[in-house]
Design a binder for these strands. Sequence first.
RNA 1: GCUCAGGUGGUGGAAUAGGUAGACACGCAGGACUUAAAAUCCUGUGGGCAGCAAUGCCCGUACGGGUUCGAUUCCCGUCCCGAGCACCA
Length: 920
Amino acid sequence: MEYNFLEIEKKWQAYWAENKTYEVSNDSSKPKYYVLDMFPYPSGAGLHVGHPLGYIASDIYSRYKRLKGFNVLHPMGYDAFGLPAEQYAIQTGQHPDITTQKNIERYRQQMDRIGFSYDWSREVRTCEPGYYKWTQWAFIKMFEHWYNNASQKAEPITKLVEIFAKEGNLNVDAAHGQVDEFSAEEWASFDEKRKSDILMQYRIAYQGETSVNWCPKLGTVLANDEVKEGISVRGGFPVEQKKMQQWQLRVSAYAERLLNDLDSLDWTDSLKEMQRNWIGKSQGAEMIFKVINGDKEYDMTIFTTRADTIFGVTFMVLAPESDWVELLTSPEQKEAVDEYLLEAKKKTERERIAETRKVTGVFSGSYAINPLTNEKVPVWISEYVLAGYGTGAIMAVPAHDSRDYAFAKRFDLPIVPLIEGCDISEESFDAKEGKMCNSGFLNGLDVKEAIPAAIDYVESNNIGKRKINYRLRDAIFSRQRYWGEPFPIYYKDGIATPLPESELPLQLPVVDKFLPTESGEPPLARAKDWTYNGYPLEKSTMPGFAGSSAYYLRYMDPQNDTALVSREADEYWRNVDLYIGGTEHATGHLIYSRFWNKFLYDLGYICENEPFKKLINQGMIQGRSNFVYRIKDTNTFVSLGLKHQYDTTEIHVDVNIVHNDRLDLDAFKAWMPEYATAEFILEDGEYICGYAVEKMSKSMFNVVNPDRICEDYGADTLRLYEMFLGPLEQSKPWDTKGIDGVHRFLRKFWRLYEKDGEMVVTDRKATPAELKALHKLIAKEQNDIEHFSFNTTVSSFMITVNELTDLKCDCREILEPLAILVSPFAPHITEELWQQMGHNESIAFAQFPEYCAEYTAENTFEYPVSFNGKMRFKLELPKSMSVAEVQEVVAANELTQKYLAGASIKKIIVVPSKIINIVC
RNA sequence: GCUCAGGUGGUGGAAUAGGUAGACACGCAGGACUUAAAAUCCUGUGGGCAGCAAUGCCCGUACGGGUUCGAUUCCCGUCCCGAGCACCA
């Protein structure tokens, strides 16, 4: 019987579904292991071969862990709220729920076909009320808590109110927004609205005016990680800065913990580094400068990491959006400043980035007094200072900061060097090294000593204090969209109030259209009676990352309608042991999830401080596009090797009608009507296509659908081939060139068990050579899988099967464990073989550990013998021999004498089971 | 500009704590079976030199140095590709 993968795979997929083979219990005496994939957004295009890469790897690991005796939680679900479904709804009027359900169905079919061992009884969908109830619940909890810097955790807002009533806010060390100091008496005198406004500045989920990334084309605001180079990640539309009232999450309160706890995680260094950069901790000092506009005087605070350069300050710079601009613009300069601000405002974020190196600015007309030298320096306004970082104002030290230097050169401002012997004629000297000069009491100190010395001085003279700044911003949490979680918030006399928990979930209302209203309100304003007890409900919805921030907790206990996750379920599963997904979430989802997890941890709802212990970033699978070359103004196509003889146009051709870069001519003619009459200039009777590695996308005609691979080769071949392609973490183009080799392996594997249509598995004793082949594989496979080196594991399978074929192996003693070893990679074929051998219980795979223990390893080793590092011959010796014994044997060996050729041995280096080197 | 990860045959890639570089697979070439093809199987396949031959020798992991009996692996410098951040004071 031939290896009939279509029949086999259909049979076992049905069997697994019917027997609920992969459902997993929360109640088990086995140790737990939690393997998670980043759940997909179900897009209309379906899965392409790139998507399953990580899923196949996690499935292999899950199956492996089950074999090793773990109770494995391996769930899957859908990140179902999102922009594409809504954009589609706007265009077609089709409710996003309908398209989403349809896409999910398609995804499920595609995933089932690959033979994943997910426990589908635990599936979650972020757009279902039963799920988003808990997203809303968490939001209310964040609304009802504040972050206490003293205890380094979230605490109930009711406790804060008690403190305010007792002693005001003077001694409260909290993460907060703009608030003035007040006493207990003052607090008592405030009205409800004022109290509510103040508390809002402390809440972890809070509402406030902020400069946001506004995307006019999408009609919504976006988070920083949803914008790349001034363009929206989804859709690719320009983004501008706009001040708006928005819900936000005080992620910045957790900056220090998010940073510190990275050390405890088993993530790649590059990913941790990305998060460290995103959090962007910098230590420095805040300093107060007196600023004078005509006869008015103010104290202005700036932030610097280089307090030591205070003697070199020759001007100050404000961000154009800074509140100081209005206060410090002199009447004479008003016109020039207004003009500059207008220019700056007109530019989109993208233009500002593009003009990064173009120096612009305007003099405000005011002056600042250097608190150490009492020198008077001008205050300028320039785009190169960012409003959102530090205080939006800086002291400029052109000698030792490249940006200040460029500005000083452009506007002809003085430059005062502060480090002995530094050359600042061409560029600033930014390095933190050298001896200070021109710096009063700091003279002679090394820069590294001068920084703390300067800050000490500033602190003891009350002109500033030590300060740590983070680049991490609070997450903007409102979206002016329809297809997202509604906020469980209503406005009672203008005061934002959470719904009672019993009212959750607050379901997404019915609307007639999905566009914003004519007056610019979000789509929810179209809903009839969008109120609670007669009070208006919040009209914006939550962003995409809301639903994905805690989904891994929900899988632990997906049907629970009284808690996000029960205490028992959480204490059993704890957190994700292995998380596999793309690196594109490094500064989005992976920060928000860690924040969300830490918040719930602070409140005692869950027992682990970090959500994802180990994380692996699978590489992207790129497309491999093919090209044909049309001779200009004809319908004739010339093969790659001959195209230089003609003037041609390069045209993308569907990779599905190209095999090993050879074009299928008939399929090409049938592909599009305009090519029906195409003519070809061939080389050696074939049309050779050009190729390029590009992103896999419809427009490049390079999308390869996994269904098609399953159809032609089978799911097991697809699984093996995706792993064989190269290291998991590496990005690589999809190229079907090698898939035949992998498919050939599976057929060889099949033939090991079956000859001439019959199962040939005997009960004879295995030979030493057969046992050796198997043991090599067992040792290699365990080590490789633990290191996620799946590509080399597949190679080892091939080697072993080749060896056993040569040995004409037919004994159960070898073939039974071999099937088990291959099963995580190719589960369908191994189940079938297992069954045909007479083992009906597929669950018998659990015997794996016994098989490993039963066999002992080889006890001799073939040493390469080198002379001064050059390998000469091999020598087989028992592993149990001591180094001294080996040295003796080697010295006496006749081949040694031959290669010595009269020279004398200086020493013999023996590395057990590695090498023998003779130094002579 | 800063940070991180890389650079190995015609191709994808192996080499686990510094120990036989190129496993395995693709491709290519030759052969077996066949009327023929497909499928399958076998052999060869980094470069150079010598030899009828088995075989032997030399060079080779981006480039230049260093440490070592021995370096793809460790250290220093240069070049090149990729990713992330990008006026963060």
